[in-house]
Design a binder for these strands. Structure first.
Length: 182
DNA sequence: GTTGGTCACA
């Protein structure tokens, strides 16, 4: 009762990661606390885009705990990341297939995916453009609320975690450019 | 606002 039960798995589940976060970065960042066994960033099976979380498996649970306590609730790129112990074992393809309950790799599979992706892409572009326009319009029209929010940017904290990998508004810039070009 | 690589054929 006076001792905390340690999870049987050494896999850490880190969520709220950036979209352009790569497994290499995660391994490098987590590798400072201990040897990394494997790092994986699950992607959407349909859109092939990062879902926003990643898994980091340590070789020892002690290192995992250390990393969890050191990187958990840390602000990176103006976003607070959260690290937890991965629950359950690695999802096996069989489970994912059973979850979907659908014949994978069929003849009309690519067709369906392509259609889904296309539809989503169009919607995303439209939304992004509308948002960018609205944002710029409001920002210029409302001198009172010129600042969206007081989000802490990539400021070097008391730690040596300086990661100027802030390409967050890069896509926004691209969308804005496209809308302007039209 | 809460969690993972989907197969086949030879």
């Amino acid at each position: 009762m006076s001792c905390y039960l340690h999870p049987p798995n050494t896999s850490l589940f880190r969520r709220n990661v950036a979209d352009d976060t790569r497994s290499e970065d995660l391994r490098r960042e987590f590798g400072r606390y201990g040897p990394i066994v494997d790092v994986y960033v699950p992607l959407d099976f349909y859109t092939r885009r990062p879902r926003g979380f990643a898994y980091v498996q340590f070789e020892d649970v002690r290192d995992a705990e250390d990393a969890l306590h050191n990187l958990d609730r840390k602000w990176i790129c103006g976003r607070q990341i959260e690290i937890q112990f991965a629950q359950g074992d690695r999802k096996t393809p069989n489970q994912m297939k059973a979850k979907e309950g659908r014949n994978v790799y069929s003849s009309s599979r690519y067709d369906d995916y392509d259609r889904y992706r296309h539809s989503r892409s169009r919607s995303y572009e439209r939304r992004s453009r509308s948002r960018s326009f609205d944002y710029n319009y409001r920002r210029s029209y409302s001198p009172r609320n010129s600042r969206p929010a007081g989000r802490p940017r990539c400021s070097r904290s008391h730690s040596d975690n300086d990661r100027p990998n802030c390409s967050w508004n890069t896509q926004y810039s691209s969308a804005y450019y496209t809308s302007r070009k039209i």
